[in-house]
């Protein structure tokens, strides 16, 4: 692999690591062709790439939601804090502190916002007082949810639903959140608001994040590290700031080049392959 930015941070504790996983859907469709990545404790790691690159699949391979979609991890391993977690059920994984916020929010439409949040604490079996305390913590980060607490989630705005989904995950008191495409379908202003909160949660509650995003520019601004996936492979990895200033990334994902702004569709696919995969 000929990556231009060789980021080797001072190797902090390897918290979550994925080692060379291969994922096959329906026994025939090969989606991930050996993906390896690590998330250091307390960091925000961005997983970037175009549609169909395998971002969501990578997250689901970690959270073990693949089975429900007839996907299988056929090679490689996933380790969290030194133990293999690839054979655990999502329930066991949530209890160990890894939880996924799915793409497209997936709030429980007929439950109120507060009930949605409460279901997030299911695995913990908290007492009433603890639940109340957790709720207050979530409302502290998402004051907007507090004002909508009794509304049916299905009738709230996209931004509020995204906040609800993240808040619901927080109720499980996770150490690590796998956040899939938080910016999907949201106004830029709301996207900023949500990323600010993610950053806040990261620094104050010490939650690590692995977030899959198509919105490369915003993601790299808030992340510490980044990986770029293409066609089921990691084609680039490194420090988020370095990635953001990398010429290829700029050209392919941000539409910026030395010749000024440029549409993504003008960037020929074969050229990208040649430069990265040769």
């Amino acid at each position: 692999m000929n990556t231009t930015t060789q980021a080797t941070p001072a190797a902090p504790e390897n918290y979550l690591s994925i080692n060379n996983i291969e994922v096959i859907y329906d026994h025939v469709i090969l989606v991930l062709k050996g993906v390896s990545l690590t998330v250091p404790k307390g960091k925000i790691v961005a997983l970037l790439g175009a549609n169909g690159a395998g971002k969501s699949t990578t997250l689901k391979a970690i959270s073990n939601l693949l089975h429900a979609e007839r996907g299988d991890v056929t090679k490689g391993s996933v380790e969290f804090k030194g133990t293999r977690v690839d054979q655990l059920t999502p329930n066991e994984l949530v209890k160990r502190g890894v939880i996924q916020v799915m793409e497209g929010r997936h709030c429980f439409a007929h439950l109120s916002i507060e009930e949605n949040l409460l279901t997030g604490a299911y695995t913990r079996g908290n007492s009433r007082a603890e639940l109340k305390q957790n709720l207050e913590m979530v409302y502290h980060y998402f004051p907007r949810l507090k004002t909508r607490r009794t509304s049916q989630a299905g009738y709230t705005s996209g931004g509020e639903q995204q906040m609800c989904a993240i808040g619901r995950a927080l109720m499980a008191k996770p150490e690590m959140i796998l956040l899939d495409e938080p910016s999907m379908g949201l106004a830029p202003q709301i996207v900023e608001e949500i990323f600010e909160i993610v950053k806040d949660l990261n620094s104050r509650e010490n939650v690590s994040f692995l977030l899959a995003e198509q919105n490369t520019m915003v993601a790299l601004r808030y992340a510490d590290l980044g990986y770029i996936l293409e066609n089921g492979r990691v084609v680039m990895e490194g420090d988020a700031k370095e990635l953001a200033s990398n010429e290829d990334v700029k050209e392919f994902y941000l539409g910026l080049s030395s010749a000024g702004r440029k549409s993504f569709k003008d960037v020929k696919h074969y050229r990208r392959r040649k430069r990265w995969l040769s």
Partner: peptide, 21 residues
């Protein structure tokens, strides 16, 4: 708690699974 989880499952299996129900 279980009743809420039941309604959650009814609404969205996948999401219920993802939060560990």
């Amino acid at each position: 708690r279980v009743g809420r989880a039941l309604r959650a499952v009814a609404d969205d299996h996948q999401a219920a699974l993802s939060i560990g129900i």
